[in-house]
Design a protein around this nucleic acid. Structure first.
Lengths: 206, 206
DNA sequence: CATAGTGTGTGACCAAAGTCATTACCATTG
DNA sequence: CAATGGTAATGACTTTGGTCACACACTATG
């Protein structure tokens, strides 16, 4: 009978996975996901194609892993951005600033093209892309906190739970980002988000 | 030298295209896009694979053509639905009803799975999917008209053009539909749309 | 130490989208 | 009626994501 993660074996497996991951990261960064084949990744990593599919469910899945890692970086960015905003500001201003920061990050750090690829991956039901859209994601907590403070300050309506409101706001941002992806380059993300929030935030008022 | 659309030739070309279109329509209706290969389509249509790519840029492109035709049907549905709504209702109620009807149509007539495929096609920049998202689409006119009437009744804010408001509302519906696609089956489209509109419509008030 | 059992790795293979050199066909021109 | 030229159609071929039966290496057990 077997058992336990016997280190030598496990170690090699981890190394293989890392080799694939790093090779893919480099290639995708330079050429874009669409222009990088699995064959080229495994060749660069020096492993067989089968090994790739031992460690990753699919090419998209690998890409999502990459994006998820970036998602965490994004959330850290949003969190630290929030700390720079004065508490004296109204909740609506804070939400506006936050939305602005997120738009910037998406547009300039991630890129709309990569967002599009991510969304395509979301739509392909073969992959588990939960971490980017999970309600446990830090982003949801950030919004919930801001809204909660808004409730305490008496600025935000109380008949809908802050968690739900946060979901609506993030859903809206995602929707606009999606729209920007499909209308690229005819739409400006930041502008649209701010305009939309101008309307949407009214509905949060007490 | 050649010239003119010489009828016999043109006729045959049109017939070929139609054969492909109809065969695909049938197959996709029964089995779903994902489960229908180009090979099976051309076999059913009794033409070669090359002919397929003479008439359609890609498999997705053919699918989009199909959906676009359905888009028109959808818009006719929405238009006639609007006629059944009493003018006495408030603009907000009308918008709610409309959103409800659209949700129903998407969920039951088109299906979320097909919407997902459509969205993937939107994101693949290789295809022209303009007709479904074009601002000339009847759907945008319908919303604009309702909002315009709302303005005249003094219910809707005037500082933002009704065309822009219509864009925001439709963008929101599309965003929620997208979210439903990626979270399927954990979300109910109609419910979410109505909840979201509950918040969003506040921002339209005068 | 032998043996069995399991996670890791291999590469030939498959399915399906899309390409392209070539052919078939037909209308126009001389 | 050739000859010409251009569009429609062909199908073998390429590419690429993904599979699978098998081999290998390593660990735990008797």
């Amino acid at each position: 009978m077997k058992n336990k993660n016997t280190s030598k074996r496990q170690q090699r497996a981890i190394e293989t996975k890392k080799k694939i991951y790093e090779a893919a990261k480099q290639l995708i960064l330079v050429h874009g996901v669409e222009n990088v084949s699995v064959d080229s990744i495994v060749e660069a990593a020096g492993v067989s194609k089968g090994a790739f599919y031992v460690h990753f469910k699919s090419k998209d899945s690998l890409f999502v892993t990459l994006v998820n890692d970036y998602t965490n970086i994004a959330d850290l960015d949003y969190r630290s951005f929030l700390l720079t905003i004065s508490d004296n500001k109204s909740t609506f201003d804070i939400l506006h600033n936050l939305a602005e920061e997120i738009s910037d990050f998406i547009e300039h750090s991630i890129g709309l093209k990569n967002m599009g690829t991510l969304y395509k991956a979301h739509l392909s039901k073969t992959i588990d892309t939960t971490s980017a859209i999970s309600y446990n994601r830090e982003l949801y907590k950030i919004f919930s906190e801001v809204l909660e403070r808004g409730v305490n300050k008496g600025e935000i309506r109380e008949d809908i739970a802050v968690d739900l409101l946060a979901k609506h706001l993030i859903l809206a941002i995602r929707g606009i980002t999606f729209e920007c992806c499909i209308r690229y380059p005819d739409m400006n993300l930041k502008e649209e988000v701010l305009n939309h929030f101008n309307i949407l935030l009214y509905g949060l008022k007490k």
